[in-house]
Design a binder for these strands. Structure first.
Lengths: 204, 204
DNA sequence: GTTATTTTAGATCGATCGATATAAAACTGA
DNA sequence: TCAGTTTTATATCGATCGATCTAAAATAAC
């Protein structure tokens, strides 16, 4: 069986994830990673293959720890509207406390354009989040003072786009007002239904 | 006077801008830049100081060539609503043709968190765009079938956030439907007024 | 205890990073 | 024509990049 490992995989992956999250993929060196993980470079390569594979582990861990956790809470919410409101309350609070933004969105910008495999994973993950909003909107009963949704899928996409811009502005240093404005508009979108779609944009 | 320069500044800055736009700041090497600009590294350093200063020139050129041009067109539009619609029509078309996204948004993600001076410039530039939407909304006359705006500033911010998420998804490979959904919702926001803001998010 | 296997630690690989030193080349003004 | 000035091209600086090699350390199986 050989010599046992002196590190715990979840802990060192979390440490690596923090580095990628803060600095991005390119700007994080293997030595930065090894230092943050309290490992030597040789152990890192032995355990994870290379920098790219380690990043894959980190992205998976991020999705399980953060993104899917929030979606699961949304699915478990009794009232979909308050579920979405809680989602954004949590998102705004977390984004103000931690200015690194969202590893998934950061990677969509930096990694996806140059790595088709990661692009596919990121696209699928964004779709997972979108689907979470879709399921929440589906659960909404028709109410007299709410307009019927023109297209639940479109509304879910708009709520996802609110998440994205909120995360971008959070990383870029946007203040509380900006983040709350976006969060409020996303919640209002879910509450009121939306009237977008009546005017075509770019028919070609 | 000495030997005259054998390059034209606007042309080589545009070439450098394309590199930063495609690959980002960190992943673009000085050799990449020199090659794209058809200059030697020495000439590059002689003319622009260092990599960071060259990037500053590129960001300024981007703002003048792209961002401010669109805002100027919006200001010059006869009808503010069709001005905003044209803005997003142009944005969607450009984003589908060119998958690099927006250099300003890309830099907000990669550069702003680590460079306070660029963070300030980027924040001010985003504010410039927001102010363009603000001026357009201000020009809108009250109409019977449109709700009065609760807050023009908030609406302008939401339209800016639509621009941002549209640009992020464009760079990450989002399809036409996604981009058009966002563009439509932004135009609808301007057309209808918005009802966001009734529910407080994150009082603390 | 011995052997086999795996993980450690430290040194180091060639390549590339941003930046510069040196000197030839190309111009202006006298 | 020639001195003065600036830009050019080439070569290279020390540092760091991702990745690997060697060998010592630490375990399990026997």
């Amino acid at each position: 069986m050989g010599r046992p490992r002196s590190f715990e995989q979840p802990a060192v992956v979390a440490a690596a994830m923090d580095q990628f999250w803060s600095r991005g993929y390119e700007a994080t060196s293997v030595r930065d990673l090894a230092s943050a993980m309290s490992m030597t470079g040789a152990s890192l390569y032995n355990a994870f293959g290379d920098k790219r594979s380690l990043f894959r582990h980190c992205l998976d861990a991020y999705l399980d720890t953060y993104a899917r956790r929030r979606i699961a809470e949304l699915d478990a919410s009794e009232d979909p509207i308050s579920g979405i409101r809680n989602f954004f309350d949590d998102l705004v609070a977390a984004s103000l406390k931690d200015r690194r933004g969202c590893l998934l969105v950061n990677s969509a910008m930096e990694v996806a354009p140059w790595d088709p495999e990661f692009a596919e994973l990121i696209e699928a993950s964004l779709r997972e989040i979108e689907d979470g909003f879709y399921r929440a909107l589906e659960r909404l009963p028709a109410e007299p003072n709410r307009q019927p949704y023109q297209d639940i899928r479109t509304t879910a996409r708009l709520i996802l786009s609110a998440v994205i811009s909120l995360r971008v502005l959070a990383r870029a240093g946007g203040d509380r007002d900006r983040l709350c404005s976006i969060a409020r508009s996303a919640v209002a979108l879910a509450e009121d239904g939306h009237r977008a779609g009546s005017n075509t944009v770019i028919p070609d």
